[in-house]
Each structure stands twice: as C-alpha cells, then as structure tokens.
Design a protein around this nucleic acid. Structure first.
Lengths: 187, 187
DNA sequence: CGTTTCCTTTGATAATTATCAAAATCGTTA
DNA sequence: TAACGATTTTGATAATTATCAAAGGAAACG
C-alpha cells in the first residue's frame, strides 16, 4: 500500500482493515530541508516515518545545539519523551535533506488501538524496537571510545558526512568539533 | 492480590481474569543478597518486579564491573536487550540486599497476550515506561555533570550509599571511584 | 570570477578526569 | 580490644578532551 504500512507490516502482520485505519490517521508529506518538524517546548503529537531523506533530533545545552539522534530512510523519528507523556519536549526535530515522510497523528490512535488489538501489538513492538535502539546507544557510550562511536556511525549512515555538518556529528558523539576533526585527521 | 499485580493495575486497569493469568506465570521468591539473577552470556527469560530490596544491572568492561542500572522497591529489573531479542545478554543482574521479587516468565506470556488484549496494552505501557526511564538517563548524561548526576541519584535512591559500594555508584555515574570520592569531599 | 559567508582544520593552552600508589578509615571477627 | 580484610580517601602524575583564536577551504551569491 505504501512504504510506512510496508514497514509496519514487516514488524508484525497487519490485516488490511487495520492498515486502512492507520492510513487514515497518517499524512504523507514532502518536507524541504531545514524544516523544523518540532520545536522544543512544544508538545509532540505525531511520529514520523522517513520514506526518504534524513532528519536529526537535537536539544540546546548552554545555548548550543547538541544532536541526540539521526534518522534516515526507513526509520522512525519522534520526540518520544513528549509523545507519550503529553509534556513539552526538550527536543527539536529538524529535516536536514528534502524528505518524504509519513506522519502518524498519535492523538487519533487510541480508537484504533481499541478496535484492532493487532495494532496495539504493533505499538508494543514499535516502542520495543526503539527501546533496543536506545539501549544500543547507551551501550555504545558505555563500551566504546569516541573514535569507535564515530566509526560505528559511519557504518550505520555511510553518507552522513556529506549530509550533516561536522559539529552536529561531534555533539552526537559527545565530543567537541575540534576533537572529532583531529580524530579524522589521524586516519 | 499482590504487589506486582497492584503495580500493573496502576499502569492500566487489569481485569480480574487477566490478573489471574499473569499470576499463573509469575513466581514469588525471596532472594538472598549477592545472588546473581542473570549472568552475562545467558539469555534472559524473565523480568523481575522488586517488592522489596535492591538490585543492580552491570556489565564487564576491560575486566571491570560497570553498573548500568540500579533498581529498588516497586521497580522492574531485567535485561531487556536479551529478553526481547532472545540473544545472550551483555548484562548481569545482581541482588544487593535480601529481596522479595516477582519473576514473570516471559516465554509464557505470548498466549496471555493473545487471549487478553488488555495485557498486550499493559506490555506496551510497561516498555514505554522503561523507554522513558532510559531516555531520562540519556538526558542526564547529556545535560548534567557527574556531580549533578550524583545528586540526582541521591534524590532517587536516598539510602543508596548505605547499600551500594562507592565504586559501583561511580561506574553508574560514568566516572572513576576516586573522582566520585573527591566530588563528595568538597561538599 | 571575485567576494562574502560559512565550515573545517590547526595550534596553543587550560581544564577535566583517569590512573597508580599509598595512607586512612571502617567493619568484622578472633 | 586487637588485628585483619575490605573499602574509601588522598596525593602525585599522566592522559584525555575542551576551549579559544586564527588560518585555511569550500560553497554560495552577486
């Protein structure tokens, strides 16, 4: 039916009827680069599936932007802290390259959960997946040096250097831009 | 009925029938301190609710123990990375003080999910909660100095100093034991 | 093109934190 | 209470990483 439904379907089989229900609360958009999908302080009400393009999640620390997450094709991006709590988010979501996305309106999903227990399961698997990703990121910080984290990121999103500024990558790795520059120099 | 069911019930209303179903796959145990509930390399097959006592999750890095998580009364502890993937865990789970726990046998939960969609929802909320906790921990590392993280931990588990060795706390905070000792000295 | 602006690299220095070794403290038990 | 083992603190030094400033390059725009 569409990329987003395909993605969900691969997490858990999604009957046609519930696929339609999800489709009805999902908006397909083309977003130009530099768009802010969410500004910190706002409540996040959607989560976005990236059909193509690249996005980053960042927050401000001492007035400076710090990247918390990158998302590229076939990934979910959202401010989960806000989406699930209804509290204003600390995070900003920025589209870095022209992107095609599917935005699911989370405030309309409750009736769909009620009606289709398979969707409830999908929700569980989706958040479980995201938990595991976050756990991976914690382990990466726990086990690996900045240099190793940098190499891992390159494996994960090989063309990230072409699309993202060095300072944004450095803050994602938890180091200063200068330090990342020096790490790259000695290779 | 029991502490664990009470806890679940407060996440989402749990009909009597499904409470019984959960109860049937849950084991109530008293665990003496220093017990290893899970050893790294093993697959985690349960998750544990702490009725009383304290536990920690740790891994080995360069032969040294590093604490990833503390859990105390009314909290869940598990090696979620392994529980949900079936892969061997990097984590160890150790009981630090004599504890009373409820261990849910996760490999028996699938039929319960199938039968009671409310339990599926509970599973979703449970993992969502844990996601938010992990996100908090990430933010703590992102936004706060080791000193602030230490103070936050004291607020969260005030008597942790009485129960846990300093080195274990230091590794949880991401610093050396000596450094934590010095942080404490200048207060 | 030439110029302007933004981004990355390089250099020098300072701050933070780790490491190693030894001393001090605490708790337990003979 | 004395003595032992375990834990924590302290001191000295080294390693890591940040910060600030300036130079070099690359991209964007007239």
């Amino acid at each position: 039916m569409n990329y987003f439904i395909d993605y969900l379907n691969q997490l858990a089989p999604l009957p046609h009827e519930s696929a339609i229900a999800i489709n009805q609360i999902t908006i397909h958009k083309t977003i130009p680069k530099h768009t802010l999908l969410l500004r910190n302080g706002d409540v996040c009400k959607e989560f976005h599936f990236l059909e193509s393009g690249i996005a980053r999640v960042f927050y401000y620390k001492d007035g400076k932007e710090v990247t918390a997450w990158f998302a590229s094709e076939n990934q979910i991006v959202s401010a989960i802290d806000s989406l699930f709590t209804g509290q204003p988010s600390l995070y900003n979501i920025e589209i870095l390259e022209d992107s095609v996305i599917w935005s699911l309106q989370y405030n309309k999903i409750e009736p769909v959960f009620e009606k289709y227990s398979g969707v409830e399961r999908l929700g569980r698997l989706l958040i479980t997946n995201n938990y595991l990703l976050l756990d991976e990121r914690m382990k990466l910080f726990a086990f690996c040096t900045a240099e190793e984290r940098y190499e891992r990121l390159l494996l994960q999103i090989p063309d990230i250097l072409q699309k993202v500024k060095l300072g944004q990558i450095a803050s994602y790795l938890g180091i200063s831009q200068e330090h990342l520059s020096r790490i790259r120099a000695r290779k």
